[in-house]
Design a protein around this nucleic acid. Structure first.
Lengths: 221, 221
DNA sequence: TCTACGGTGATCGTATACGATTTCATACTC
DNA sequence: GAGTATGAAATCGTATACGATCACCGTAGA
């Protein structure tokens, strides 16, 4: 059950993009990568095309691949789409979530709250994913879950942790999490849960837009 | 500007799957396809991996590719996801849709109505896509549009035209279209438009489930 | 009759080689 | 000096070749 070399190339390149070793705009040359990885260009090419399909890189015929840049408009599209998908995912999960699930989520949220002073954005973002992952474990529709993960991946690729840039948003976020848990505990209607979950993601986007209003970030509306 | 052979292979194979020339379960062998297309196996392999990523086929290492089967559960997941995505897409488009757009959509819907007697499912389905495409032309978020098209593609691959199987659903659908147009014309709030558009797709799914209740179609709920 | 085993063919996975296309620097013309 | 032709270098695109892995099937033993 050895992993294929194509899989290896995919994993390594993706990790280097996510970790920042390959910054946006970095030029990926097939033969160079092949040499570094100790494989031929064929599996590297396959990995590149796969990463392109997942929007980690852009690829132009006969020209080559470059790590996808941080595009504020792209960030905006992704956040808007995520607000819709996460809203639906939370609503679908709601009737299946048990009290132990909620307890676990609340515990994660407590760790996030503990993080608020001497703020660590990386740790906070990781805990944030944990929090929502707990809620989504019950989601009965795997397609929707897949879309959630795609969105998260895209955000990672954009490396836009809004919490990093908008002061105070992290604290708001923790409060909204608690509110969401109360809704779920009380057996609120799915429509209410969906509205709250959607608003939670949208608020992060709005905070980002308001904070960068003078920085030439375009609005898609 | 000649298309790459990989692109050619992708298009040809995908078309054959969508048209039914390659039925679900059909075994796709790289070398055979390469021979038929007059290219080598490398671009065919790339096309296959791409089709796999888009769920048209399944692929197993060292074993090969087979055309994805018709799975009622998969159909259900897809329809549920589409109802959410299409609802959001319609709501986002709503404020940007002009009266000429609505007139065009209404004209398409009239052609659908004309189709109702001596019913042609293929033509009806095509017109149905046209109808919604008109509404989505204004959608400001390309990611969401992309998800809509993915869903439509998957339905084509499943070749599950619900209209074919549920008597009377086509007529209901035409009526719901008219209702949707009235909402858009009256400048109804985005939330109302979203609810209506989502319900439109969900109603098709519900009709399918009700109609096949005794045929062992599993429920995801 | 059933199961374990091993051989054989089919198919995929990857390396290598070479042709096709693009890019960029340079020289040339107006 | 601006714009354009030209050539070489870099890079991708694809063909071919061969090794690796798996499924299938016949056989032997219990």
């Amino acid at each position: 059950m050895t992993a294929s070399k194509s899989e290896l190339a995919y994993t390594v390149i993706k990790d280097k993009i996510l970790s920042g070793a390959y910054s946006p705009g970095y030029r990926l040359v097939l033969s160079t990568l092949a040499g570094q990885l100790g494989v031929s260009v064929v599996p590297v090419r396959e990995a590149i095309r796969r990463l392109e399909a997942e929007s980690f890189i852009t690829f132009e015929r006969n020209v080559g691949a470059t790590v996808a840049g941080i595009d504020p408009t792209e960030y905006l599209y992704t956040m808007q789409t995520l607000s819709i998908i996460e809203g639906a995912a939370t609503a679908l999960s709601a009737p299946l979530i048990t009290q132990p699930d909620i307890d676990r989520a609340r515990e994660v949220n407590a760790r996030m709250r503990a993080c608020l002073d001497d703020f660590d954005p990386v740790r906070f973002t990781a805990l944030n994913l944990d929090f929502h992952s707990v809620l989504f474990e019950s989601c009965p529709n795997p397609h929707i879950l897949d879309l959630v993960h795609r969105g998260w991946n895209r955000l990672k690729a954009l490396r836009q942790s809004t919490f990093t840039y908008v002061p105070g948003r992290a604290r708001e976020s923790v409060a909204e999490h608690e509110e969401l848990l109360r809704l779920l505990e009380s057996g609120a209607p799915a429509a209410d849960v969906e509205r709250a979950a959607r608003a939670h993601r949208a608020a992060t986007l709005d905070a980002y837009l308001a904070h960068n209003a003078n920085d030439g970030v375009p609005s898609p509306y």
